[in-house]
């Protein structure tokens, strides 16, 4: 079982080596990188390329590790006991399996995506250590042990909001998705918008990298923003000549797709103002 990238996803060799190592040795793969460089998309593409089901577990600040295993619905059981429903005698009826349970018990291998693990409480990764390491966990209410029939391919993404514990890191493979260079980004654009005019792409990407290089940006635009922006440029039928930097107007055309924060827009307006004064 090897991942070689897909038609819709440009994967570098280092990424492929990391993914294949994680698949072969059945260890989780921790993926980090700037927002919008395709961390979540990677799991979807692995599932698509290997023709496996994808189980997504989106972590939020309130998510507990237990919720990924199972939840015990005590309220329904209480209600059923009042209504005299015979179901309530069996506690197993009120155990709701979580994402990990689901991933462990399907009859085929699945891809399990634990998205943005750093959003959760600082102890969250520690609580999942055993479960991910041994691929089994214990259900206290019923006394059974859920064991993975097929070890899932686990992809974990992190945005670096919190530092992850060492014990957790030791069990993972790690890959940092670097921001792509011009050639790679051109290939990515080509994959997403086949047959797009080459000179438009060149002009747009030149300007895009210039914007990324502006010092002091709060949020640098990334791959997904570049793709959105180019789609807008194509939809509005903007000619490459119009894109060329006009010193009097530092704000790029349709900048809403690139600059997501009013401080950054102000920064560009200030730059434009200074350019006007000089010119």
């Amino acid at each position: 079982m090897r991942f070689e990238g897909t038609a819709a996803y440009v994967a570098d060799k280092d990424l492929m080596v990391a993914v294949n190592a994680a698949i072969a040795l059945e260890r989780p793969l921790l993926v980090k990188g700037e927002p919008g460089t395709g961390k979540t998309e990677l799991a979807r593409q692995i599932a698509a390329a290997l023709d496996l089901e994808l189980v997504e577990w989106n972590v939020k600040s309130t998510t507990k590790a237990q919720q990924g295993l199972y939840e015990y619905d005590a309220v329904s059981r209480l209600r059923d006991s009042q209504l005299g429903d015979a179901k309530f005698n069996d506690i197993a009826n009120y155990i709701k399996p979580g994402k990990l349970w689901h991933a462990f018990t399907t009859d085929r291998k699945v891809v399990l995506l634990i998205d943005e693990i750093d959003k959760a409480d600082i102890e969250f990764p520690n609580d999942l250590l055993q479960e991910l390491d041994r691929n089994e966990f214990h259900v206290y209410e019923t006394g059974e042990t859920i064991r993975a029939m097929h070890r899932p391919i686990v992809i974990i993404t992190s945005n670096n909001e919190k530092e992850l514990p060492d014990a957790f890191l030791r069990r993972c493979f790690f890959h940092y998705i670097r921001f792509p260079d011009v050639e790679t980004l051109t290939r990515i654009v080509e994959v997403h918008y086949p047959g797009i005019k080459q000179n438009l792409v060149r002009a747009a990407l030149t300007q895009f990298y210039e914007i990324r290089d502006v010092p002091g940006l709060k949020k640098k635009p990334s791959t997904s923003e570049a793709l959105d922006w180019i789609r807008l440029l194509v939809a509005d039928d903007i000619a490459p000549e119009d894109l060329r930097a006009d010193p009097k107007n530092a704000l790029p055309k349709l900048h809403g797709a690139l600059l997501k924060n009013e401080q950054d827009v102000h920064l560009f307006e200030r730059l434009a103002f200074m350019a006007r004064r000089q010119g």
Binding site: K13, D14, A18, A21, L29, K32, L169, F173, F174, H175
Partner: peptide, 14 residues
Amino acid sequence: GFYYLARSALVKDE
């Protein structure tokens, strides 16, 4: 390939 494998197995922080 060995470099990539070693990197992803040994380094856990960019």
